[in-house]
């Protein structure tokens, strides 16, 4: 609780800086428009202003500052414009409308969740295999680690197009990219977790003459839960990024990634910013849900803090 005041101060400073940045970022267009309507601008004519610095122009024309915060297609929209757009597209529009961010968000979210589920289940299965087979461990593990240094997202457009050409469309291609991205964090985390019981604990179970399966269910799996949740948090964030990037190359019809892309095609900056904030809110919610699950589970297992 001690940190609420500093956090709020930092956020307030960021918003203040944002407003301050809006003025020079948008001033040139604002001045051109104002001059067209007959206001006196210093210096006159758009050509004379072209090479002048934006900050200097802003200081010489303080009357136009208000206009910089209320443009239709600003270079940098003001915070309140983004908030108004978010409110309009999230709460005011019907959720079935194509202009509702809830509609686009759901499309991205469903691909994210499906991919996340596939990736997590696959990751757990591979991790169990790696822990129980030395050959698999030595063959697959170096590649699993090396593959994390590779920019996997680069394959996203290809997966979409290839699956499209064999007739698979819609949710699944995006979900596969998400799955791929969340797969490796889960594998690496689960292998670490399933190996976390030390020799003493394994020996104890041996004295109980526990079978391999019993060791797995009663010792390894419970011991891996904290690691599991840590990698889930990385995985869900990666899944969301995967789903968003997966929406870019399809010509961008629906989803939050499509909102970003159409926004950048048509210069709808407010739309880009609101889609960006929607993805941020979605990511934060997803991580928060997993953190909540983590806290609940660990508490029930007696590991809670």
């Amino acid at each position: 609780m001690r940190s609420i005041v500093p956090v709020l101060t930092v956020v307030a400073v960021i918003i203040a800086l944002w407003y301050a940045a809006c003025v020079p970022m948008n001033i040139k267009f604002a001045l051109t428009m104002a001059e067209r309507e007959g206001a006196v601008i210093e210096p006159e004519g758009a050509a004379a202003r072209r090479d002048l610095s934006a900050i200097g122009l802003a200081l010489r024309n303080p009357d136009q500052w208000g206009d910089t915060l209320a443009q239709d297609k600003p270079r940098l929209p003001a915070p309140h414009q983004v908030l108004v757009e978010l409110y309009d597209t999230v709460i005011d529009k019907k959720i079935t409308s194509k202009r509702s961010l809830v509609f686009h968000g759901w499309i991205t979210l469903s691909a994210t969740l499906l991919g996340f589920a596939i990736g997590t289940v696959g990751g757990i299965v591979l991790a169990v295999g790696i822990v129980h087979s030395r050959a698999m461990d030595m063959s697959v593990m170096p590649w699993a680690i090396a593959s994390q240094t590779i920019p996997i997202l680069a394959i996203a457009p290809m997966i979409i197009v290839v699956l499209n050409s064999v007739g698979v469309q819609g949710l699944l291609p995006k979900a596969l990219i998400s799955a791929y991205l969340s797969f490796f964090p889960v594998v690496v985390g689960m292998v670490k977790g399933l190996r976390s019981p030390d020799q003493m604990q394994l020996d104890l179970l041996k004295t109980y003459s526990a079978s391999k399966g019993e060791v797995f269910w009663k010792l390894r799996l419970p011991a891996s839960v904290p690691y599991f949740f840590a990698s889930l948090k990385i995985g869900i964030a990666a899944s969301l990024v995967g789903a968003i990037v997966g929406e870019l190359p399809t010509g961008a019809v629906r989803g939050l990634g499509a909102r970003l892309l159409t926004g950048s095609y048509y210069g709808q900056t407010i739309q880009i910013w609101s889609a960006l904030f929607a993805t941020a809110i979605l990511a934060a919610l997803l991580v928060a849900v997993i953190s909540g699950l983590e806290r609940g589970t660990l508490k029930r297992m007696g590991l809670g803090r």
């Binding site: 500093p6 956090v7 709020l8 101060t9 948090k233 964030a237 960006l276 993805t279 934060a284």
Partner: peptide
């Protein structure tokens, strides 16, 4: 600054910044 910027920083680090 540590108490203010660090929570904001770790929050932003988890966001899809490619956006």
């Amino acid at each position: 600054l540590r108490r203010g910027l660090l929570p904001v920083g770790s929050f932003v680090a988890a966001l899809p910044i490619v956006g």
